[in-house]
Amino acid sequence: MNIVVDENIPLGKDAFSTLGNVSVLPGRQISSSYLQEASALIVRSVTSVNKKLLAGTPVKFVGTATAGIDHIDQEYLNNQQIGFADAAGSNANSVAEYVLTALAIIAQRFQISLKGKTLGIVGVGRIGRLVANHAKVLGMEVILNDPPLARKSQDQCYRPLEEALQADFVTLHVPLINEGVDKTVHLIGEKKLAAMSSSSILFNTCRGEVIDNHALLLALKNQQIQGAVLDVWEGEPSIHWDLAHTATIATPHIAGYSFDGKIKGTSMIYSAACDYFGIAPTWKFTEDAPPLSHPGNAINAHGHNLEHLLVQLAPRLYDLQGDDTRMRSLLVLPMPQRPTRFDQLRRQYPKRREFYAFPLLLQDADPGVLSDLDQLGFSIHQFEK
């Protein structure tokens, strides 16, 4: 069996080589000509999988190692009886940690307290729920917006979009839907931005097209909102570079790119492919956990509250500001070079572990703070002299 795998899927060749012969290609270069002898295709979000790509090929199974599936024509796959699997939930913790770290950086940069602030969460799926749980631990008030869930559950906890947009922070976690009552393309445009508070900061880690990027740039320049944390962009990799320059934090579509999340995605699609082809799985990723910090490196937590420790710990474990710096380095390049370099930043992304992978020692921490840090995903151990 021949299998084509996106080169940006970590350990993809190792895993799928147990099923057949693997060809590894850049996701944007995968075309029909490379699939003429392929039985399976394993992609990420940059490859559009549709009739144009698959017609006339022997592909029987498609897997995407991503949670989002707007790049997949599922109707075509169903009609052609082509097997399909996604990695829903694999990157949820990674994205939630991105949002949490960005909140910590903003709290420090603007010298504000997160406790008591409001967070509007638009889209309450796996990621939205995690973000909501984190915010509640921090003492923030969450305003949930999810029309499909509201209709299904009739739960009054889901509020209108207009109400969520009044929050101090607004974070978007919706799928990209092109039409219909739940359309999300340009969900946030000129009118919605005008309705937001002038002190609000808007986060987007789902899909760039959910925000009208031109309207957002004008809103930022006119100080209609205070800032924007943007990981996704319209027209990737040829994005709105002025918007990247103006954003509070700008990153190259890597919020879900933790090593742990990507390996989970690889594992999920590998298992699904084994099930589809009736092959017993033989590949399993294992990695030794990092050693516990030495007592001499213990962090003195005496008298520090949860938010103070979050501001110290989150950027220490995830260098989000480094991601921002690398993104801004593109702005000094000649315009024609920027899209290629944008993709390179994603392809050559540093190995980023999730919080739980770093056992930390805290000295003299309040038990309640330890419990809260545990709920935020940190692997914390109390150390006393």
Rank of each mutant, 00 (worst) to 15 (best):
D6Q: 01
Q312G: 02
L309S: 05
A228V: 10
V142H: 01
Q375A: 08
V229Q: 08
E7A: 07
N305V: 08
L310P: 04
A365H: 00
L360I: 14
P291Q: 13
M1S: 13
D86I: 08
A247I: 05
L217H: 05
V170P: 01
G180R: 03
A301S: 14
N8F: 05
T66I: 08
V5Q: 00
R353A: 09
D6K: 09
K385I: 12
I225D: 00
W241V: 00
T325N: 08
S39I: 12
C206L: 04
R109Y: 10
S31M: 07
M327E: 06
K136T: 13
Q154Y: 07
P175T: 04
H294F: 06
F285H: 14
S371D: 02
A85E: 05
L317Q: 11
L11W: 08
K117F: 04
S199T: 10
N8R: 06
V232C: 07
R109G: 11
T171G: 04
G116Y: 13
L114D: 09
K351F: 07
G89R: 05
L193D: 00
L187R: 06
A289H: 08
T282P: 09
N93D: 14
D155A: 12
K52S: 13
A167T: 00
G235N: 13
A228D: 03
E190W: 04
A88F: 11
R151F: 13
T57Q: 11
F355D: 10
T184R: 05
I380H: 06
D146G: 07
W283A: 01
G322K: 12
